[in-house]
Design a protein around this nucleic acid. Structure first.
Length: 556
RNA sequence: UGGGGCGUGGCCAAGCGGUAAGGCAACGGGUUUUGGUCCCGUGAUCCCAGGUUCGAAUCCUGGCGCCCCAGCCA
């Protein structure tokens, strides 16, 4: 057996040894979403695992829709899922399947079990079934219909298929063990009557297989070798194996479970996410605050960064909750190397440079990305009136505040040193304008001949070159790091979205219509949003820059 | 009280009987025309208690704690 590579996870260990031991010649995995909602970051973990393992070991991964419950599934979700998996960077080639592709075969196999005396039609009501299932500590009781003859079961099951009975009138159950400690083995339902049109099979079926009955057999039909799912399905594994062992399936897949993702400040529950959308707590499935792949994409996170995140959290069996910084880190790491820098003043404070000639305007060189020389440079226009960030000025500077204050000198990035000489206030005492002087010898932001140093460099935008825009600051959707999904509405962060209007951006920030991520210097990474209009460009903050000053201030 | 699973530094996570990787975060320090980046440095004896062994996070026994399961959802 080959030595284990450090950093590999237990799934890859199993695949490695299965291949080395000759149990399998190739590896086949599958990503099996139910099209009843949008994919979220937890699914991204699973997608990266399934497609990643397959490609690393030279196998392939199927995209299979687990479409066994037409009451909840919709075409919109099918389309969204395909789009999101592709965007994440994975390709299923020709391996696109649906559990519904196998409905006929699954039906035939159900008759196989009936004929073998291993499945029966139960007429009990929903309530009776529940009452007879027993509890966690008490065994269940056999259904009065458990002893039906094979012929009667066959007849009834065929009539269920023919649509002779109303919804819920009967079910087909596997005959296993009503006293099993594992409740999944207490004669689980294989088929229920459901007169509902299916997105793919239309009205041809009036019975639909359950997850337990459909999943393993679908894996077997597709030749899946390693069926990876989350921990809550561990209890289903004996049932998964029971069907495989009792049916003439073409291959014998094995199920392995790993811990699902939990992320601070987010809820990864399709039920809750659906509710957030339906109740209008967010603007849609792709609201940038949503943990959906669509939301994350719209927020400007590149797919490589999402994949790097998935790789960084690993795969294991221990329940865990991932620190939000783990999500932000790979985004910053990637964008730092790739995003063009631009200057944008989010909360403008006007500054008049008194000794700069009135009416004069000049172009200064600004580097696009100090981490990437090939990104080149651009021109930014400078003039007598500029805007700086309100937060970059304090009339009475706090300790360790190095930015602008009366009498204090700072550098304007790529421009000049300026010193604050005056403050203009309105009737209410609010600062509305600053008066400064500049030092012509510091052009380009260079240190002056006298070697004078300055402790801060500010970003700025000239009034002459500014383009007004709207900027949306996206924050945690939930205020609590570990929000209660059962009471999610009360957990919402009232400040999850800050919409800033009247922001001033340098022209280059809006020159391109494409949604390439940009760094607004000293602030964070932003992308142009699709809500932009010709007169009102809109940007969304992907993630802020680390801010050790803010941290120090917060600590006091 | 039945069945299944899990417990390694604040968080994630390696470790597979030979004397605790790595990443994130935090905190110091250096560089810096982004209080960004980058660079350097700082922290655990492995849930607890016994046992086996020359040697245990790794094996055994007994506790304790946490998670999942009683849908005709997946």
């Amino acid at each position: 057996m080959p030595a284990r590579e450090p950093g590999q996870d237990f799934i890859r260990d199993i695949v490695t040894s299965d291949l080395a031991g000759g149990r399998h010649k190739t590896v086949v995995t599958r990503f099996p979403p139910e099209p009843n909602g949008y994919l979220h970051i937890g699914h991204a973990k699973s997608i990266c695992l399934n497609f990643g393992v397959a490609s690393e070991f030279g196998g392939h991964c199927n995209l299979r829709f687990d479409d066994t419950n037409p009451a909840k599934e919709e075409q919109e979700y099918i389309d969204a899922i395909e789009r999101d998996v592709r965007w994440l960077g994975f390709d299923w080639g020709d391996n696109l399947f649906h559990a519904s592709d196998y409905f006929e075969r699954l039906y035939e196999w159900a008759e196989v079990l009936i004929k073998a005396g291993k499945a029966y039609v139960d007429d009990q009501t929903h309530e009776e079934m529940r009452a007879n299932r027993g509890t966690l500590t008490e065994p269940g009781r056999d259904s009065p219909f458990r002893g039906r003859s094979v012929d009667e079961n066959l007849d009834l099951f065929r009539r269920m298929r023919a649509g002779e009975f109303p919804n819920g009138a009967r079910v087909l159950r596997a005959k296993i063990d009503m006293a099993a400690g594992n409740i999944n083995l207490r004669d689980p339902v294989m088929y229920r009557i459901l007169h509902a049109p299916h997105p793919r099979t239309g009205t041809t079926w009036s019975i639909y297989p359950s997850y337990d009955y459909a999943h393993g057999q679908s894996d077997a039909i597709e030749g899946v070798t390693h069926s990876l799912c989350t921990l809550e399905f561990a209890d289903h594994k004996p049932l998964y194996d029971w069907f495989i062992d009792n049916l003439p399936v073409p291959s014998k897949p094995h199920q392995y479970e790993f811990a699902r993702l939990n992320l601070d400040y987010t809820i990864l529950s399709k039920r809750v996410l659906t509710q957030l959308v339906r109740d209008g707590h967010v603007s849609g499935w792709d609201d940038p605050r949503m943990p959906t792949i669509a939301g994350i994409r719209r927020r400007g996170v590149p797919p490589e960064a999402l994949r790097a995140f998935a790789a960084s959290i690993g795969v294991a069996r221990a329940d865990s909750r991932v620190d939000y910084a783990m999500f932000e880190h790979p985004i910053r790491e990637l964008l730092n190397k790739t995003a063009s820098r631009r200057m944008a003043v989010l909360r403008p404070l006007k500054v008049v440079i008194e000794n700069y000639p009135e009416g004069q305007v000049e172009e200064l060189d600004a580097i696009n990305n100090p981490e990437d020389e090939a990104a080149g440079s651009r021109k930014v226009t400078f003039g007598r009136e500029i805007f700086i960030e309100r937060d970059d000025f304090m009339e009475v500077p706090a300790k360790k505040f190095f930015r602008l204050a009366p009498g204090q000198e700072v550098r304007l990035r790529y421009a000049y040193f300026v010193k604050c000489t005056g403050v203009v206030k309105d009737a209410s005492g609010e600062v509305t304008e600053l008066r400064c002087t500049y030092d012509p010898e510091t052009r380009g932001g260079n240190t002056p001949p006298d070697g004078r140093k300055v402790k801060a460099t500010l970003h700025w935008v000239s009034a002459a070159g500014a383009v007004p825009a709207e900027v949306r600051l996206v924050n945690h959707l939930f205020a609590n790091p570990n929000p209660d999904a059962g009471n999610f509405a009360a957990e919402l962060n009232p400040n999850s979205l800050e919409v800033l209007t009247g922001c001033m951006l340098e022209a280059a920030a809006v020159a391109s219509n494409e949604a390439a991520p940009m760094q607004f210097e000293r602030q964070g990474y932003f992308v142009r949003d699709r809500d932009s209009t010709p007169g009102n460009p809109v940007f969304v903050r992907t993630v802020g820059l680390k801010d050790s000053f803010a941290r120090a201030v917060a600590k006091g």
